[in-house]
């Protein structure tokens, strides 16, 4: 069942006062502002694009849930005015899997960072993609651990300096679109915090997609990544994205590795149809068990948990 609504009534309230000038105020917990993110961080930009995508797609916000792990991006759940879950480090995806399967009417979005999703949570990432769990995963990739002070991540480019690779990183980084694709994701895209129009459109597509959709967002961390690597300010990083990002939708995801300060390939790399875990399970059970099968979608929650 789609969680899209045909009317706009449940949408976030529009801003009317001059104090609340940000157009996405209605999607945010304004009583939690100011947020913790540094100036020039790309997480806020991505949150704005995500809110814009929800807005444009006209989702009933009562039926959208955000699940985050730990880290700078892990704080997204705390700022979105949705049912929002700030979970443990690495476990946002399995938590989201349970949430989605318990109530398939919800649109469940995992919003977390590269360290959270791909290092400590890497095993969950590959298995959720393999199962084609119907969730959207937005991965902020800033090449570094921000919250803990700038340590090496599984996405840190070769030779880049971090606090735990003070003489350069000599681990090969993950190519996230390739990883997601090879594990079975049905929608895979990469954008940067500079490409907000395309990113918003891509998030709309990812949200609409049935199955495991994955959007990587390359974002500046000027406080740690840029400073340690003498790359200048946040603006310099945006200029780097401007100069060095190439959009190529037709490239094979195995060819979109990111090397230190070299070009970055952006685009929508995968957009395919494949039955989700729940679709496969329902079809299989209906075939094997016939009328005896009681659909997990038919029995909803109030009746099960009880409320009197």
């Amino acid at each position: 069942m789609s969680s899209k609504s045909t009317t706009k009534t449940p949408q976030a309230e529009r801003v009317t006062t001059t104090e609340d000038i940000h157009p996405m105020t209605g999607f945010l917990r304004m009583d939690r502002m100011p947020h913790i993110w540094c100036p020039t961080c790309g997480i806020g930009t991505t949150v704005k694009c995500f809110a814009a995508a929800l807005d444009k797609e006209n989702y009933d916000l009562d039926k959208v849930a955000v699940v985050s792990g730990i880290g700078c991006t892990g704080r997204v759940a705390g700022y979105m005015k949705l049912d929002s879950f700030h979970t443990t480090h690495g476990r946002a995806i399995p938590f989201a899997t349970g949430l989605h399967l318990a109530n398939p009417e919800l649109k469940v979005v995992v919003f977390s960072g590269d360290g959270d999703l791909i290092a400590i949570g890497g095993n969950h990432f590959i298995h959720a993609a393999r199962r084609n769990i119907d969730i959207t995963v937005i991965c902020i990739n800033n090449f570094i651990y921000g919250m803990t002070g700038g340590q090496c991540a599984p996405t840190t480019p070769l030779t880049a300096n971090t606090s735990t690779t003070p003489y350069g990183n000599y681990e090969h980084p993950f190519n996230l679109p390739h990883l997601a694709t090879s594990c079975g994701a049905v929608y895979v895209a990469r954008w940067s915090a500079l490409h907000i129009r395309r990113l918003t459109k891509s998030l709309q597509e990812a949200l609409r997609k049935k199955g495991f959709s994955f959007v990587e967002v390359i974002t500046p961390c000027s406080t740690l990544y840029a400073r340690r690597n003498k790359l200048g300010t946040g603006l310099d990083l945006m200029n780097y994205y401007h100069d060095m990002c190439e959009i190529d939708h037709d490239v094979h995801p195995e060819d979109v590795d990111i090397n230190f300060q070299e070009n970055i390939t952006l685009g929508k790399f995968v957009d395919i149809e494949k039955p989700t875990f729940l679709d496969c399970l329902e079809d299989g059970y209906k075939e094997k068990l016939g009328d005896k099968y009681l659909s997990v979608r038919s029995s909803h929650t109030r009746e099960l948990v009880g409320h009197d």
Partner: peptide, 23 residues
Amino acid sequence: IQMEDELASMAAILGASWGGRKS
């Protein structure tokens, strides 16, 4: 659902409980 490990199993039942099912 058979998860990939017990870390995931435990996380999943928490999510499912918030989704409204006894887990």
